[in-house]
Simulated assay, not measured.
Amino acid sequence: MAGFRISTYHWPTEGATVPAAARGADKLALARQLGAYATIDYSEPEWPKTIRKCYASVDIALDGVGGLLGHQIVDLVTEGGTFSGYGMAAGTPTVVDGDIARARNVEALTIEQLNPYQTVRPTRVARLLAMAARGEIAPVIGASFPLSDAAAAHRALRDRALLGKAILRP
């Protein structure tokens, strides 16, 4: 959700409509609280049809889940759009078939897309920290665990039981 929070801060000012897809009522409520224009529960079997019904196009899609869900997201991207796969919470990353991407004129990006940004990373980190200091963005912390209970934190993340990130403290 932290990445989502940043994107809702920027994109509406550029005229974009930023919906959020999540699984379950609690995560959808959090997405609405963080500023999502609309929310879609991707545990519903017909969720891609709901997206197509509600939006004329999906120009940019960000996928932090991967697996089958990631491939469903790729299928939603409009010809000439961009798919960015940056995570694999489902266990596997989304691998986009190059021939399909070229045929649909879809730019398919992976986590490796971030490598060229390493030179500007300090500037971006400073900007994000300044935004956080002003209260414009904030991480979503789901739970805090003592370092001695790191296994419980990992289980909570694996089981997708948290609304936000897990923090380990000394």
Rank of each mutant, 00 (worst) to 15 (best):
R124Y: 14
D75T: 01
S43W: 04
Q118A: 10
P12N: 05
S7W: 07
G91Y: 04
T123H: 05
L168H: 04
W11V: 01
L163N: 13
W11Y: 12
D75I: 01
D99E: 09
A166I: 10
E107W: 01
L168M: 04
T17G: 05
G80P: 01
T8V: 15
I6D: 01
V58I: 11
A152C: 05
V120Y: 05
L30H: 02
W47L: 02
L162Q: 04
A20P: 13
A90C: 08
A90D: 10
R169C: 10
D159C: 06
L109E: 03
A20I: 12
T94E: 04
I51S: 04
H10W: 15
L163M: 12
V58A: 03
V96R: 03
A152R: 09
T13L: 14
P45C: 04
T13H: 15
E136L: 15
K165L: 06
V106D: 02
M88R: 00
G87K: 03
L168P: 05
S144A: 14
L34A: 02
D159F: 09
E107L: 09
E79N: 01
Y55L: 15
E136T: 09
T39S: 06
K165Q: 10
V65S: 08
G164P: 12
T17D: 08
L34F: 04
L30N: 01
V106H: 03
E14P: 04
T78V: 00
F145R: 11
D41W: 04
P19A: 03
G80K: 00
D63E: 07
N105M: 06
V106T: 02
R158C: 09
E14L: 15
A103P: 13
V95T: 06
V77T: 00
A103E: 14
L129N: 00
L69C: 13
A150K: 05
D159Y: 06
G67S: 08
R169E: 13
S7E: 08
A56Y: 04
K27N: 08
I73N: 04
A150P: 07
G142M: 08
K165E: 11
M1W: 13
T82K: 03
